[in-house]
């Protein structure tokens, strides 16, 4: 048994603004199948957090059950993490977010975890607009339980054993837009150039940011006839635009005649080029039409799909305290009998 990751790293690794190298954003060595798309997404998440100079201890990773939900063990080893029961990540995320609004919440889920057992939870997290990144590693199957079709498997997609899926797929991207998510994107595990800037923008987005990442399962769903295999996805992929994330204070150098720049809430920007015909990421209707058109043509539309940079997340809606509960002092948490009586009085 010789499966151990050496501790040596490249001697000239660059440092980010807070003096960390990529090593500080790594997790344990993955135990997923070799070649799993999920691992590539883990790498992209770590890279995005490194590039954004997020302090690892300011991040909380949340997940459910599945190979995808295991991945938080394989990135951001210095961050907080909560592995919930199957499909229940949104509830734990809601509680954590309400208790401590200062952390950056990164939810990782699977298509089974979100579109089947956790569907009821998933839709309410969107409806409530938690300020979090919600990333689904979408392989069209239940990887951890040996590859049964999931609810995102396309109608007509063939399983490794040869059976054809007779049901229509739930499209999590369309669904989240319908439910009012203000940041919606789709990507592919094999396209880090697109995925990393999308993750960075999602982190910067002040409300619920949803990314559906198609992530081939090499062991159970990478066969000929599957619509979630590496080959099929590469052949059918179509991008809304190229995406570039530009941090705050950095000058935008490229010219973007056929493009668009979207300023994010904190002043950083998304620079989009080669825009898909008729599509405007800030116009929900055009985004829905683009999605439907792609679907009709059998294309997989990736990239940023829809964004509304000015959104009111749950804390703003509820006007809760700015201070995380764990550092609220007793005198504020427990204002005394007079305050209680005044409250009761106001309700009479």
């Amino acid at each position: 048994m010789t499966y151990v990751r050496p501790t040596f790293r490249h001697p000239d690794l660059p440092k980010n603004n807070i003096n960390f190298t990529k090593k500080d954003y790594e997790g344990a060595l993955s135990t997923l199948c070799a070649g799993c798309g999920h691992d590539s997404i883990s790498g992209a998440i770590a890279q995005a957090c490194f590039e954004l100079s997020v302090e690892p201890h300011r991040i909380a990773k949340l997940s459910g059950i599945g190979c995808s939900s295991k991945t938080p063990a394989y990135f951001l080893g210095n961050s907080h993490g909560f592995n919930t029961v199957h499909g229940r990540m949104p509830s734990v995320a809601t509680g954590a977010y309400l208790a401590n609004r200062d952390l950056l919440y990164f939810g990782v889920s699977g298509d089974g975890d979100s579109a089947s057992i956790g569907m009821g939870q998933f839709v309410h997290a969107i409806r409530r607009n938690l300020n979090m990144v919600y990333l689904v590693m979408n392989n069209g199957c239940y990887g951890l339980t040996k590859g049964q079709d999931s609810a995102t498997a396309d109608n007509g997609s063939k399983s490794k054993a040869g059976s054809v899926n007779p049901f229509n797929a739930i499209d999590l991207v369309g669904l989240s837009m319908e439910l009012g998510a203000t940041f919606v994107a789709r990507s592919f595990s094999g396209d880090k150039a697109q995925l990393i800037p999308l993750i960075k923008a999602a982190i910067k987005h002040p409300g619920f940011a949803f990314i559906d990442v198609i992530s081939p399962c090499v062991t159970f769903n990478n066969n000929v006839g599957s619509t979630k295999s590496y080959d099929y996805v590469r052949e059918h992929i179509e991008a809304t635009s190229t995406v570039d994330f530009v941090p705050i204070m950095e000058e935008i150098t490229a010219d973007y005649e056929d493009g668009k720049e979207i300023t994010l809430h904190d002043g950083s920007a998304l620079q989009l080029q080669k825009l898909h015909q008729g599509w405007n990421p800030e116009d929900k209707l055009s985004a829905m039409i683009a999605l439907q058109n792609a679907k009709d043509k059998g294309e997989i539309l990736t990239g940023l799909v829809y964004i509304d940079p000015n959104t009111n997340a749950l804390h703003d809606v509820l006007q809760t305290t700015q201070t995380p509960l764990n550092i609220l002092k007793e005198d504020i948490l427990c204002p005394g009998i007079d305050a209680l009586e005044a409250l009761n009085e106001s309700l009479r």
């Binding site: 990751r5 040596f8 691992d39 595990s189 081939p216």
Partner: peptide, 14 residues
């Protein structure tokens, strides 16, 4: 090679 990136991600020394 199916370009899954696994080797690139796992390599400790990039």
């Amino acid at each position: 090679c199916i370009e899954c990136d696994a080797c690139m991600d796992v390599c400790p020394t990039d």
